[in-house]
Simulated assay, not measured.
Amino acid sequence: MLFSCSLYANIDYPIAPEKIAKDTWVLWGANEIFSAKNGGHIANIGVIITAEASLVFDSGPSKGFADALNAWIKTQGGGPVRYVLNSHAHPDHFLGNQVFQKSALMAAAPTRDAIAEEGSDLAENLYRMVGAKMQGTQSVTPEKIATNQRFNLGEHQLEIKILNGHTNADLVLFDHSTGVLFTGDLVFYQRALTTPHAVLKDWLTSLDQLDQLPYKTLIAGHGPIDQTRSATAQTRQYLLWLDKVMQQGAEQGLSMAEMLSQWRKNPLREIALSEYEFVRSLAHWYPAYEVAALK
């Protein structure tokens, strides 16, 4: 689906990339829900620019955002964007795809299939929440299937790993040269995590695998930079708390309405969007806990 609104055709999409390592930048997403103000840019977007070629880790929420990103990349004097990695099939991570060469677009097979099947509906839904900054945005499915693989980009020795848990395919990128790890939404830091397609056991296993990597700097899908190896622990703590509070509530026979106040017991309740995301996770997960408690 293609969205157009000539009244807002000249809307500016300001971006502010921050250099975090050699050749490596992050465009920090707002720790907020989708809104017209943030234009849907709530996820962290990574960029590696070398003289040979450039790489984008997640293309962002809209054509306007990706246009601004692509224009900025060209000002840096690096090579063309040869790789655009989609970490997973949530709209804040892939709806900028159309700005880049289709041959550059890469995603795990389940992510590619989900974008092909649901991308237009996700774009339409995001347009309802964000509005005019979605002008001209359409979903584009990646051509290339990403697998567990290593490749070089200039002096950077990069490794793609396909994990799961947040969704059924979560792509992460580790730069062995700089120690930077882009995790997509397998890690949330100082921001409550989202669970619409999550599987608890798989997510915890993937966090264990991330902890085995010798990274120095972790860029979560949402939240600030982590250079103390704290972010995976926080995500794990939050997941285990969700599991515990929902299991206990179901065993006590609490209704979903009665569960709403339980977010106050969360030791991480002060992080961004803790109440909002707890309510959403109740809707996603609690019915299964109720069924299990009745067996």
Rank of each mutant, 00 (worst) to 15 (best):
Q209N: 12
H222M: 13
R229V: 05
A192P: 10
L193H: 02
D226Q: 09
Q237K: 12
F182H: 03
T217Q: 14
V199P: 02
V199G: 05
S206R: 05
A231E: 06
Q227H: 11
Y189E: 06
Q212P: 09
I219W: 07
T205C: 02
A192K: 03
A231L: 12
A231T: 02
D226P: 09
R236F: 07
D202H: 14
T228C: 10
Q190C: 08
W203H: 11
A192L: 04
Q237C: 06
Y238M: 12
T205M: 08
T183G: 01
Y215D: 10
H197F: 15
L204A: 08
G179T: 12
V187S: 05
S177C: 07
L200N: 13
P224G: 07
P196W: 08
A198M: 13
F188L: 00
T194D: 14
H222T: 11
H197A: 15
Y189R: 03
Q237R: 14
H222D: 08
Y215F: 15
Q190I: 08
R229F: 10
A220V: 04
D211P: 01
Y238C: 07
T217E: 11
R229S: 14
D211C: 10
D185C: 06
T232N: 06
D202N: 14
Q190N: 15
I219R: 10
T235H: 00
L213W: 07
T228H: 15
T194V: 08
L218A: 10
G221W: 00
G179I: 15
T217S: 10
Q212I: 02
T183H: 01
P214W: 11
A220C: 04
D226G: 08
D211E: 15
S177I: 09
L218G: 06
P224Y: 13
L207I: 07
L193V: 04
F182A: 04
T217V: 13
Q227I: 09
P224M: 08
G184N: 05
T205A: 15
L200Y: 13
L193F: 08
G221A: 05
